[in-house]
């Protein structure tokens, strides 16, 4: 008992010291001027999510997000320092000031917007529907009375349950199983994020994405630490400027075209100047 009391007292003392020290020393995010003066901007990117942010076989960062990161650094006149991060700790990197900006295919959500500040979008994601060429589905209404394959827990499942009750849903636990079911003809079409089905259809001749953009749009936006207004404003202005030169279409051609193929419509993914139609 005595020992436990001692340990508890010790821990308490430790916590108290830490909190007191923290008040005095807490740092903060870097403003636009501080970034310019330091000569480098630190941007958090994915390093294993092709084609958005990945390290290629030569050890170089590539992808749609990376293309934008390089341009931001260039236009600020500073060097780019890349921090490779994983999806679950993207917010943590901003809140602990380890990075200035996160460009890791960060989808805007209300919940995240409470914790970080999102700039204008530069990409959008909606649902896509892929079906065999022989019986191509080009309108969601064509699915009434037919079977649509979805994965459990995805936006596609929720969307069709809420809006198209006459469509029979065939649900699978994993994407892999769902795609195999489509190839085996166990359903008339398959729906998931349009980026996914577009890339899949390229790999699987005989299947086409008849509906490229359906349902409520999610947008992908740059994010900065909450309250970092100077940097946020600069990024927003920059995205508008870049929109005038159709920068994000050029980004798409350079980084995504190969994945989505010659027939895919860039406008189903790209957002120019922060304006979502």
């Amino acid at each position: 008992m005595k020992n436990i009391a001692r340990i508890a007292a010790l821990l308490l003392a430790l916590v108290l010291t830490l909190t007191t020290a923290s008040a005095a020393l807490a740092d903060g995010y870097r403003t636009l001027d501080e970034i310019r003066d330091s000569g480098k901007i630190v941007i958090g990117l994915f390093s294993d999510k092709k084609p958005f942010g990945y390290v290629d076989e030569n050890g170089e960062y590539q992808g749609y997000d990376v293309y934008l990161a390089r341009r931001l650094a260039e236009d600020l006149g500073v060097a780019l320092e890349i921090v490779s991060l994983d999806a679950p700790n993207r917010i943590e990197y901003l809140q602990s000031y380890k990075v200035d900006v996160v460009l890791a295919n960060f989808t805007y959500t209300e919940d995240r917007a409470q914790q970080v500040d999102f700039a204008l979008p530069y990409m959008k994601v909606a649902l896509g529907v892929v079906s065999p060429d022989a019986a191509l589905i080009t309108e969601p209404e064509q699915l009434n009375g037919k079977t649509l394959i979805v994965s459990k827990g995805t936006t596609a499942e929720t969307f069709f349950e809420a809006n198209y009750q006459e469509v029979n849903l065939l649900k699978f636990d994993s994407y892999t199983e769902a795609y195999i079911a489509l190839i085996d003809g166990r359903g008339d079409a398959l729906s998931t994020d349009n980026t996914e089905v577009l890339a899949w259809a390229i790999e699987n001749p005989g299947f086409t994405v008849g509906i490229e953009s359906l349902g409520s749009l999610d947008t992908i936006n740059p994010a900065v630490t909450k309250g970092n207004e100077t940097l946020l404003n600069w990024i927003n202005e920059e995205i508008v400027r870049l929109g005038r030169e159709n920068f994000f279409h050029a980004d798409y051609e350079a980084t995504l075209r190969e994945t989505y193929g010659p027939n895919a419509d860039a406008d189903s993914l790209v957002v120019e100047g922060g304006v979502v139609e």
Partner: peptide
């Protein structure tokens, strides 16, 4: 690891 890497930066500004 999180405590030292993220926590110290957040609490004390030790990057």
């Amino acid at each position: 690891l999180y405590l030292v890497y993220f926590g110290f930066a957040r609490l004390f500004g030790w990057d």
